[in-house]
């Protein structure tokens, strides 16, 4: 994409048809800029997990914000920009507490993209009319414009949702929307006000923990902005790019330091199953049991046994670690304090 600034601005004015009269008033054509910043994502799906999703360009160099879904963790992502061009996309970082992932399109250094300015994101009140822009149901292909649905911000609430049997890890206030955004491929799309100004990131296909109904929600961009900035600057710890300066603990070190043994890594991605806990150890004190599956350490999703050893290596004596395990199909959050006596000889 060898765009120049002028080309981009012209595109916004001419490429797209005029937006007419939502809620009885006319909107100028620039409102269609969301069409330009939303990208269609394609990756690996399996069974009920779709192979497609949506993302939003947040930098001119081609950083894309989306949800931290299976598409991101599986890798091999392709992004299709509004002009129909295809790019490979790699994960820069994820932020599980906000269910956010930052991708980078593999581009030429000179490539420039239209993007939203997160600093200009609005924080509207419930009752505000909104539009949701997404690749839902993969209706649009190539350079075809993404689907738009309309609605109103119904409430601003903490999300209590489940994904299958799991508690959904998102720990932020979200907007509930009265439009149906809970659709295949819509997650990671852009929520704007009815003038096209950016507001939020469309959430995933999850159900409410109590009612079991499908939740239509979006995470405010004002909430996501610090995390995106951190991910851009590489400040935040990120599962996708483990910090290389702390080597992973060996299985022996893990047992020595925490009194914890994990199922040996027979495959590249052997899950972090707890194989044994030494009585009286730090792990035992935290309540970890044989058979637990470690799913979160701090706010990082643990995808494998190796991932757990790498993550636990980062903590120093006296630090408190929040470890979330899955036990009997329930998530349990345990607290582990790294004991001074458990320090190894280094």
């Amino acid at each position: 994409m060898k765009f120049h600034r002028r080309t981009l601005l012209t595109l916004a004015g001419t490429f797209l048809p005029p937006f007419s009269a939502l809620h009885g008033r006319s909107l100028d054509t620039d409102s269609f800029a969301p069409q330009q910043v939303v990208v269609k994502l394609f990756g690996a799906g399996l069974g009920s997990l779709d192979s497609y999703g949506t993302g939003v360009l947040v930098t001119a160099e081609g950083h894309v914000l989306t949800v931290a879904s299976h598409l991101v963790s599986a890798g091999f992502l392709t992004a299709v920009t509004s002009d129909g061009k295809r790019f490979a996309a790699e994960t820069v970082a994820t932020e599980p507490s906000l269910d956010a992932a930052l991708l980078k399109l593999k581009t030429e250094p000179s490539d420039q993209f239209p993007c939203i300015d997160l600093k200009s994101a609005l924080d509207p009140e419930p009752g505000t009319p909104v539009l949701a822009w997404s690749n839902m149901f993969r209706v649009a292909a190539g350079n075809e414009p993404v689907s738009i649905v309309h609605g109103v911000i119904a409430a601003s609430v903490p999300l209590e949702a489940v994904q299958g049997k799991w508690k959904f890890p998102l720990q932020s206030r979200v907007w509930l929307i009265d439009a149906i955004t809970n659709n295949s491929g819509a997650a990671g799309g852009l929520l704007t006000d009815d003038s096209g100004r950016p507001v939020g990131l469309i959430g995933r296909e999850i159900r409410h923990a109590v009612s079991g109904t499908w939740v239509n929600y979006a995470v405010p961009l004002t909430t996501l902005r610090p995390a995106v900035e951190a991910m851009l600057e590489g400040r935040k710890l990120a599962a996708a790019q483990p910090q290389r300066n702390t080597p992973a603990l060996s299985a022996r070190e893990l047992t020595a330091r925490f009194g914890l043994a994990l199922m040996p890594a027979v495959l590249e991605r052997t899950p972090a199953w707890v194989d044994g806990v030494i009585p009286g150890s730090t792990a035992a004190a935290a309540g970890i049991r044989r058979g637990d599956l470690i799913v979160l350490i701090g706010d990082a999703v643990i995808t494998s046994e190796a991932d757990a050893r790498r993550r636990l290596a980062e903590y120093r004596p006296g630090q408190k670690i929040a470890i979330t395990v899955s036990r009997d199909e329930q998530l349990q959050e345990l607290s582990l304090v790294v004991a001074a006596s458990a320090t190894d000889n280094r």
Binding site: F3, R5, L8, L9, A12, H23, G24, R25, L27, D28, D30, S31, A33, Q36, V37, T59, A60, E61, Q112, F113, P114, C115, I116, D117, K119, S120, S195, G196, R197, P198
Partner: peptide
């Protein structure tokens, strides 16, 4: 520099609809 190419579309100056506008639309 990065944001100089961002689409500056957020300058829309729509006047809010009045209650009478809404009634008329209805």
């Amino acid at each position: 520099g990065r944001c100089s190419v961002c689409l500056l579309v957020f300058l829309s100056t729509l006047t809010p609809l009045t209650a009478e506008d809404l009634r008329q639309n209805e």
